[in-house]
Simulated scan of single mutants.
Amino acid sequence: MKKSLYLLTLALVSFSLAGCNENKKESKSSEADTNLLTSTSSTTEAAHQDVRLKFNNIKVATVANEFKGGTSLADLKELFGEPSTHEQSPAGDVTLDLYTWQFDSVTVSVHLFEDSTIARAISNFAFNRKTRIDKSLYNTAEEGISFRKAIEILGEPDDFSEANSTDTESLQAIWVSGTKSEENVMANVTLTFEKDALVNKTQSGLID
């Protein structure tokens, strides 16, 4: 591939935790507390949970396939309907198409290169699930683990972004629901991965 596609900074697909506190509720059932949430059968289904689960179906292309084979705009429309906004942005010496879908406070953002998804993000979503993520559990997520292993430990993240470039593959995941904190405190956990290895983690408000 002659053209270089530089890394999309996470700021382009950054998260906003504003509003997540309203969605943070404890579940009366443990179903939404499973390692991989793949259906919407929970009686404590969160607002726009269907959008969050459909988001898992977006395929992000990599440099190994010259950024081909990512989810197309037509397939994105099948998942989410017509986009709310569309704009173009430069990335190195190429131009990307940025589409967003708005579902109340929940936002889905996707960058496409030549009709192939190379970056995706979902923000301001929170599952309804049983509180289980405390500081001790957070500490078991050690540097170098894969994203899949992080899901096995903490469960499916509420929000995350993923961006691929000619240099690396980056993913940032955020957990806001199911976290253990003091009353009236919104705790959260953020994990950052490079090439499917945990390179940085932070938490705010967690207690044991």
Results as ranks from 00 to 15, higher is better:
59 K>G: 02
62 T>C: 07
62 T>L: 12
62 T>F: 07
64 A>V: 12
65 N>W: 05
66 E>Q: 14
66 E>Y: 15
67 F>A: 10
69 G>M: 10
70 G>L: 07
71 T>N: 04
72 S>N: 03
72 S>W: 10
72 S>R: 04
73 L>V: 14
73 L>P: 02
75 D>E: 15
75 D>F: 11
78 E>F: 09
78 E>P: 01
80 F>D: 09
80 F>A: 08
80 F>C: 05
82 E>T: 15
85 T>N: 13
86 H>Q: 13
86 H>G: 03
87 E>H: 13
89 S>D: 11
91 A>K: 07
91 A>S: 15
92 G>F: 05
93 D>P: 04
94 V>Q: 01
95 T>F: 06
96 L>N: 04
96 L>T: 09
99 Y>K: 11
100 T>F: 02
105 S>T: 14
106 V>N: 02
107 T>C: 03
107 T>N: 00
107 T>L: 02
108 V>Q: 08
108 V>W: 01
109 S>K: 10
110 V>M: 06
112 L>M: 12
114 E>Y: 09
114 E>A: 13
116 S>I: 03
117 T>C: 10
117 T>G: 01
117 T>F: 01
118 I>R: 03
118 I>S: 09
119 A>C: 06
120 R>L: 08
120 R>Y: 00
120 R>H: 04
124 N>H: 13
125 F>N: 02
126 A>C: 10
128 N>V: 12
128 N>L: 00
130 K>M: 12
130 K>C: 05
131 T>V: 13
132 R>I: 11
133 I>M: 10
135 K>P: 03
136 S>E: 15
136 S>N: 15
136 S>D: 14
137 L>P: 12
138 Y>E: 08
139 N>S: 14
140 T>S: 13
140 T>P: 07
140 T>A: 08
144 G>I: 02
144 G>D: 08
144 G>A: 08
145 I>M: 15
146 S>R: 06
146 S>H: 02
146 S>N: 01
146 S>M: 01
147 F>P: 00
147 F>Q: 07
148 R>D: 15
148 R>F: 09
148 R>A: 13
148 R>M: 11
149 K>L: 04
149 K>M: 08
